[in-house]
């Protein structure tokens, strides 16, 4: 059941999107989000959607994978949509019993659902096409100026890298522990809320213990390879902007500018 989680997963590939500098991708995601929240009406949303479709198309990530990644968020998306649908004041469209659906509510719900889906999918495209290592490299490089404020940028990005790396491992581990306790007759599916919460103890305790054990082992392994933080550390792969990054920035700027223009015209 946990296999459905694709959060932070990386799908190796060799498309232009995969080869873009991670800094470019990070910055463009920010541009994308700004554009998404600036969008106001059908035309601008369509433009953002089109961008996303083109990016997905180039990257070669299967549409099915993307739909699957939205599945865990289905509840939140629908919930937001329904709330907006019923609780927006305006011109009444249909009215039955105590609830009314307004024209404004309908469009707002539609845009809300679209916005959340686009937001999630867009940011997922970043992790789908960028390996955790280059993602953190990019992050570290972008945040480097913060060092002057005594923020441990390298350590933070290393932590993020490790966290991303361990998501699949811990998912697997959890699956294994669940199976093992099920084999001993543990029942996670019946009983009231308290019983169900209690049923989690046999999973959480071994999971915590193994996480600590893994953390300890990893720390030792890193020290064995003389890791001592970011001070004076050099990189095997130096990040370098290339022509394709310039093109990507240019296209990103055009899209953002268009969305802003469209907003001014109320489209």
């Amino acid at each position: 059941m946990l296999k459905d989680i694709t959060l932070g997963q990386y799908f190796p590939g060799n498309s232009v999107i995969h080869r873009l500098d991670p800094r470019t991708k990070l910055l463009l995601v920010v541009v994308y989000i700004v554009a998404l929240f600036t969008a106001k009406w059908f035309v601008s949303y369509a433009l953002v959607l089109l961008c996303l479709i083109v990016i997905i198309g180039i990257s070669g990530v299967k549409p099915r994978t993307i739909l699957k990644s939205l599945k865990p968020l289905l509840f939140i998306i629908l919930f937001t949509g329904i709330l907006n649908l019923f609780y927006t004041e305006g011109k009444t469209l249909v009215s039955f019993w105590i609830s009314t659906i307004t024209y404004e509510g309908l469009t707002r719900a539609f845009f809300m659902i679209l916005r959340i889906s686009l937001l999630v999918t867009g940011t997922f495209m970043l992790t789908y096409t960028t390996s955790p290592v280059s993602l953190t490299d990019g992050m570290e490089s972008l945040l480097r100026p913060l060092r002057h404020l005594h923020i441990p940028v390298h350590e933070l990005s290393m932590m993020m890298c490790i966290a991303l790396r361990f998501i699949p491992t811990l998912t697997q581990e959890t699956d294994k522990i669940i199976s093992a306790q099920k084999a001993r007759g543990a029942d996670f599916e019946s009983g009231n809320l308290v019983a169900r919460a209690k049923a989690l103890v046999p999973i959480l305790v071994p999971l915590f213990i193994s996480s600590f054990r893994r953390a300890d082992e990893l720390a030792t392994a890193m020290e064995c390879r003389c890791y001592h933080g970011g001070e004076g550390r050099t990189k095997l792969k130096q990040l370098q902007y290339r022509a394709r990054d310039a093109v990507a920035f240019f296209l990103g700027a055009i899209v953002l500018a268009s969305v802003i223009l469209l907003r001014i015209f109320g489209l």
Binding site: K176, I177, A183, R184, G185, A186, P202, S210
Partner: peptide, 30 residues
């Protein structure tokens, strides 16, 4: 599931109770 007992690989990673006694008793209790 009770008649066919399965011991996983590295089963020591499933121990969770406070005492060995309680951990062994988990299956029979269920």
């Amino acid at each position: 599931r009770f008649r066919v007992g399965l011991v996983f690989q590295y089963p020591e990673y499933q121990l969770f109770e406070e005492t060995v006694y309680d951990d062994i008793a988990f299956g029979p209790k269920n």
